[in-house]
């Protein structure tokens, strides 16, 4: 009875993109280790986690959205708005115990409204979140057009906190928050009904509805989760930069989408892993690290290489889809 299974090199079809991503990451690490002596030091990799913590958090929220077959372009702006609000409100003397939950709730509510519009009025996620991006950026400017420094003790303490991981190396609080987010997202995606409904919607939204799954509420919650992740990333960035600025994280949504796609998630939805996204973020980070190590390469090569990788992964995805289509 085990016939007609689409298997490539003995792997489940769902795991092929993830395997490709991992292979790419290992390849890049090996390349770096061979080319540069100092590359294989632990702190290089810890810095990868520290410098990309907010990208990682945003990309995880984006993974869930893309798994449903949607997209969220508002995340970069929501992140910036959160840094602005955090800076402005902490300057007014708000307690972090109120501020942090409030901002997280605000980001989630922002996402939930977008999700509601997308589900209820059948609007295209692309255009709704595009408008959401404008709104959030515009609200940033309404608060202030200049950068606001953050000097509240809570944020400064968080920024100075270093979690030792042995051997004289340490992690920032943001990196730890990103790791906790990854753990929560893994649990959400693979061990809850909500997570499985997200996958079902991406696989076939019509079937998911006919199977009696709560498609509408899951969609609203997915965008709320993405908005919440963006707000959390905003808090992490406030700590990292110790400032709120309306031009923080311009274009971050593109990096997040790139990380998700390079992490092996299909943009058409239904197939992909949170773990893959984490590797995708690390790949983006390591490309940047390699460019820095090289010294002669200019920073724009990062963007071009990311574009090329995006192209290769998208073409590969198309080929996999076409193959699956033929089998049916």
């Amino acid at each position: 009875m085990n016939t007609a299974a689409v298997r490539i090199l003995g792997l489940d079809r769902r795991l092929v993109p993830l395997a490709a991503t991992l292979a790419l990451f290992i390849g890049l690490v090996v390349y770096g280790a061979v080319s540069y002596d100092a590359f294989l030091s632990p702190q290089v990799f810890l810095n990868l986690a520290i410098d990309n913590s907010f990208l990682c958090i945003v990309a995880i929220g984006m993974t869930f959205v893309i798994l449903t077959g949607g997209i969220d372009l508002s995340v970069g702006s929501v992140l910036a708005l959160t840094t602005m609000a955090a800076a402005a409100l902490s300057k007014l003397g708000w307690s972090p115990w109120i501020l942090v939950p409030l901002l997280l709730a605000g980001g989630s509510a922002f996402g939930a409204i977008q999700g509601f519009l997308i589900h209820r009025y059948r609007l295209q996620p692309f255009i709704v979140t595009l408008a959401g991006m404008f709104v959030a950026r515009g609200l940033c400017y309404l608060i202030d057009t200049a950068s606001i420094p953050i000097s509240a003790p809570f944020f400064v303490a968080m920024a100075e906190a270093r979690i030792p991981v042995g051997g004289g190396n340490s992690l920032s609080s943001g990196a730890v928050i990103a790791m906790i987010t990854v753990a929560v997202a893994l649990w959400l995606a693979h061990s809850t009904r909500f997570g499985r409904t997200v996958y079902a919607i991406g696989g076939n939204a019509k079937s998911a509805t006919l199977m009696g799954l709560p498609v509408g509420s899951a969609l609203v919650r997915v965008y709320a989760f993405s908005g919440g992740c963006a707000a959390l990333a905003g808090l992490v960035m406030s700590v990292y930069m110790l400032s709120g600025y309306s031009l923080h994280a311009v274009g971050l949504e593109l990096d997040a989408i790139a990380a998700v796609v390079i992490g092996g998630t299909l943009l058409t939805g239904g197939i992909g892993y949170v773990a893959g996204t984490v590797v995708g973020v690390l790949i983006l980070g390591i490309i940047q690290t390699l460019v820095i190590f090289n010294g002669t390469l200019s920073s724009w090569w990062t963007r071009i290489v990311i574009g090329i990788l995006l192209f290769l992964f998208c073409v590969a995805q198309r080929l996999i889809e076409a193959r699956a289509g033929q089998k049916r």
Partner: peptide
Amino acid sequence: GVGMQPIIATLILMVAGRGVAQL
């Protein structure tokens, strides 16, 4: 030719394009 969704196909150039311009 490849059959990508338009938004995905043009996203690639959107990401890489500014890098090319800077180059």
